[in-house]
Design a protein around this nucleic acid. Structure first.
Lengths: 211, 211, 211, 211
DNA sequence: AATGAATGAGCTTTCATTCAT
DNA sequence: TATGAATGAAAGCTCATTCAT
């Protein structure tokens, strides 16, 4: 029956929407109260819904948190893949696009960063979180590694190790994010990008000329 | 003698000793269960003492956590100042000594790192933590900045900005710590140091020659 | 049906009803165990409900106690105002009705008196209680004062001070309540009323003739 | 041995002194924090001594409280018996002296009254307290009753019942004490005494002339 | 006699979870 | 699907009591 089908699809959609709404509320709450301080009542209240709603949609708090981490990664994943896709075809341009993506406001955003670090802070104690992180991050590492190798193969960088460059870049963005989170007043997006570029220029001077 | 030993453990230690013991137990517990998962009962049990002992010495859980963060920083502070003091007088040597300190096993230790990140993960939500971090970190920033400025003044580095270098180095160690915490299997101390050195070589080639 | 009854008791009552039920349970518990000895678990158990119920409805124990005192006063207030309203229009009759109300079983009841004295016993240490008491008692004082003044103006009582009479009557009922609480075996409602009447007769012989 | 004996007696004296000191501290603490709020740590601290001191001298908190109540009564007893002893030989004078004693500053003192009412507030729940109260109060009742009977036998008071008078006077002082405790700002010692005298004048006009 | 660190039972409070509506 | 009153386990915290010194 067409009507039933439509209803079903609408319902399904509505369900997805509601879950997204709850995930957004969760992010806000973690950001404001920390992973430890956040309660399901906070999330429900932030979403303007009733007490039991989170358990209804996510079964348990643990599961909600797991889904929130995945949601965060899916969001980042989108940004990451779009940065790769929408940049010029050269490896150097793509690598730079990724770095710019990492400091752009929608990614390097204190609310989201607070949640990232909240999860990382519990990661050692919660294997579930560590596994999710490992899976996604391996993917990003592979992509960056390939870009770095391409750049090296294009230039005169005999001594440079692609994995080292990848590690440094990953570490730098993580470290800059921490700075953004902990020292919001002194942190500056332009300076951060300048730091990253200064490293790229240092290792790949032919591809990243002095500005 | 077993009895004497048992009695000793239950006997009044000096207040300071007992508190240190509890702070150590707290670090272990946070590392194992996370900031949110850790309970005062865990800490007491880890220290082999009774339920009420933590409140007796630290008044409240919040205060215990605050003191733990300070204890962590005091420990790091010792390492930091010693690294500066015990290295050759040249700025380049001192800066390198600091970087080596940051990856040395007693500092770049998963147990401690888990606790650092646990606090950073709550820092946005807990101003107390943020303030403590800010106070110590400003000090380290100033010292590193001075070292970087000295190096620059000694060589032919007209284009290099000392603050940028400091920011990059700080970010890198933070990022490498995160890698150590989250990806213990792939993280490698030697590689980490190699990454850092590669950056130092890239910006200050005269002071940090190719190895 | 037993099942239905059980279900009913566990089912959501109106919020107001549930709170009243809990306030009644609180009064019973204070009466049995004293203000200090009463626990929230006692109250919940007395109400046949679960541990957390009191905090759910009253936020905290302190607040529960405050609301209990108010509940007690509202109950007394009803008795007081009804005694005034339902008695003959003459001031003397109304004043006598108030005194009779004070010794009637539903008011001069050991369970309730125990709670009154429990609060008065803490009043010096808890400003909140003192404020609540002061507010209500001022009202009763004013009403009684007006009645005493009316009686004085009606008779030949040149030397009588209305405020003194009011003070004496208030003191007497408080003192008789204490006797009822502490010496239940020797306390006698009739004797108590006789005492009060003997005073009324002594000061206002025209309005309160010898019986 | 004289020395030993002296030491012993000094020690014994010191012990009694210490206990009195602790009882005084207890009274202060109950007055400030209420029976429920007072802790043994408070008492020790108020006495300027160490944690375990109260249990050392009084075995348990319950016992301390019991002894405090007795201490309070012994103090009142002294006042009572002295008022009787030191007043003129006539019954009327002695009865008046007792009433004056009840409102004199050292007796009708908010600190002490707070403790009295704290005990009365728990009396229903704690039989020990009730028994102690009953024992002392019966004694006072008997003495006052005899005085009242003497006065009646001396004058033309055919209709007056001695027990009723005694009850009224006792109730009045209790009630005035409550007023002093709860409404310290409006309570007035002179007015209180005036109230009592007005009653004495009303029932025994020949013995207590209009002032 | 006095100390005060340590204990541990018992309390208040929080909150994820359940369930009748 | 959604609600929110109710639950009850688990936590932090308090404090009377103990005991080695």
């Amino acid at each position: 029956m067409a009507i039933a089908a439509e209803k079903l699809s609408r319902r399904a959609l509505s369900k997805e929407r509601r879950q997204q709404q709850l995930l957004d509320a969760t992010i806000t709450c973690i950001s404001n109260k920390g992973l430890g301080g956040m309660t399901l009542a906070d999330v429900a209240s932030e979403a303007g819904l009733s007490q039991g709603i989170v358990n209804l949609h996510f079964k348990s708090k643990d599961n909600l948190l797991k889904e929130t981490l995945i949601y965060l990664f899916e969001d980042y994943d989108n940004e990451f893949m779009q940065a790769v896709a929408n940049s010029p075809p050269q490896a150097a341009a793509k690598l730079l696009a990724l770095m710019e993506m990492d400091v752009k406001p929608s990614v390097c955003d204190r609310k989201k960063l607070a949640v990232w670090f909240a999860f990382w802070g519990e990661a050692k104690a919660v294997p579930t979180y560590r596994k999710i992180c490992a899976a996604y991050e391996q993917k990003y590492d592979e992509i960056m590694l390939e870009l770095a190798e391409n750049i090296i193969s294009e230039g005169n960088y005999a001594d440079i190790d692609a994995q080292t460059v990848t590690d440094v870049l990953t570490s730098m963005t993580d470290g800059l994010w921490l700075a953004c989170l902990i020292h919001p007043k002194t942190f500056n997006r332009g300076t951060a990008m300048k730091s990253i570029y200064s490293y790229l220029h240092a290792v790949f001077p032919d591809h990243y000329p002095k500005k």
